[in-house]
Simulated scan of single mutants.
Amino acid sequence: MVREGFKTAREGLQDSFPLQLYHKAKKYFWDPQAIDFTVDKASFAQLTPGQKQASLHLASLFVSGEEAVTLDLLPLVQVIAREGRLEEEMYLTTFLVDEAKHVEFFNLLIREVAQEDNLERFHGDNYKRIFYEELPKAMNRLLDDPSPEAQAEAAVTYNMIVEGVLAETGYYAYYRAAEALKEQGVKLPGTLEGVRHVQRDESRHIAYGIYLLSRLLSENPSLWDTVERRMNYLLPYALGVVQDIFRAYPEGFPLKLEMGEFVNYAMGQFQKRYRRLDLARNQNLQEVERIALETAEGEA
Rank of each mutant, 00 (worst) to 15 (best):
residue 203 S to Y: 07
residue 104 E to G: 01
residue 125 D to P: 13
residue 237 Y to F: 13
residue 119 L to R: 10
residue 215 R to W: 03
residue 126 N to W: 00
residue 48 T to D: 11
residue 33 Q to S: 15
residue 294 E to A: 09
residue 3 R to N: 04
residue 148 P to Y: 02
residue 146 P to I: 05
residue 212 L to K: 14
residue 125 D to R: 14
residue 9 A to K: 08
residue 209 G to F: 07
residue 96 L to P: 12
residue 196 R to N: 11
residue 79 V to P: 01
residue 271 Q to E: 14
residue 64 S to D: 14
residue 149 E to F: 00
residue 81 A to M: 07
residue 167 A to H: 10
residue 213 L to T: 02
residue 82 R to T: 14
residue 214 S to M: 00
residue 175 Y to S: 02
residue 162 V to G: 00
residue 182 K to S: 14
residue 12 G to I: 13
residue 163 E to I: 01
residue 62 F to M: 14
residue 104 E to W: 07
residue 239 L to V: 03
residue 70 T to K: 07
residue 141 R to F: 00
residue 292 A to R: 01
residue 287 E to V: 06
residue 64 S to A: 12
residue 38 T to Q: 13
residue 49 P to M: 03
residue 110 I to H: 12
residue 271 Q to P: 00
residue 5 G to P: 07
residue 233 Y to W: 10
residue 270 F to G: 01
residue 101 K to R: 15
residue 231 M to A: 09
residue 196 R to V: 12
residue 29 F to K: 14
residue 165 V to A: 02
residue 135 L to F: 09
residue 76 L to W: 13
residue 215 R to Q: 11
residue 263 V to Y: 00
residue 81 A to W: 09
residue 47 L to N: 10
residue 187 K to G: 05
residue 75 P to N: 02
residue 10 R to I: 13
residue 8 T to V: 15
residue 292 A to W: 00
residue 29 F to G: 14
residue 14 Q to H: 11
residue 132 Y to I: 11
residue 104 E to F: 04
residue 41 K to H: 12
residue 217 L to G: 04
residue 21 L to Q: 09
residue 13 L to D: 11
residue 46 Q to V: 08
residue 243 Q to I: 04
residue 82 R to N: 15
residue 79 V to D: 03
residue 166 L to C: 01
residue 184 Q to C: 05
residue 34 A to T: 15
residue 156 V to Q: 04
residue 261 E to G: 07
residue 27 K to T: 15
residue 248 A to F: 03
residue 203 S to Q: 14
residue 254 P to F: 04
residue 190 G to P: 05
residue 293 L to W: 03
residue 231 M to D: 08
residue 189 P to Y: 05
residue 52 K to M: 11
residue 285 L to M: 07
residue 219 E to Q: 15
residue 94 T to F: 08
residue 1 M to P: 09
residue 197 H to M: 08
residue 174 Y to I: 10
residue 68 A to I: 08
residue 13 L to H: 09
residue 147 S to M: 05
residue 29 F to M: 12
residue 262 F to T: 05
residue 145 D to Q: 01
residue 86 L to P: 00
residue 43 S to M: 11
residue 144 D to H: 09
residue 158 Y to N: 05
residue 138 A to K: 14
residue 285 L to I: 09
residue 262 F to H: 13
residue 277 L to T: 03
residue 212 L to E: 10
residue 16 S to Q: 12
residue 4 E to V: 14
residue 52 K to T: 12
residue 273 R to G: 00
residue 216 L to A: 03
residue 102 H to T: 05
residue 52 K to N: 11
residue 159 N to S: 13
residue 240 G to V: 03
residue 252 G to Q: 08
residue 174 Y to N: 09
residue 156 V to K: 02
residue 121 R to H: 12
residue 131 F to H: 13
residue 243 Q to P: 04
residue 229 R to N: 10
residue 69 V to A: 04
residue 272 K to G: 00
residue 104 E to L: 08
residue 21 L to A: 09
residue 161 I to Q: 00
residue 225 D to E: 15
residue 88 E to G: 06
residue 137 K to H: 12
residue 124 G to V: 01
residue 58 L to P: 10
residue 125 D to V: 15
residue 204 R to I: 07
residue 22 Y to P: 03
residue 11 E to P: 02
residue 87 E to Q: 06
residue 35 I to P: 12
residue 259 M to G: 03
residue 59 A to P: 09
residue 47 L to V: 11
residue 195 V to K: 04
residue 292 A to E: 02
residue 12 G to Y: 08
residue 166 L to V: 09
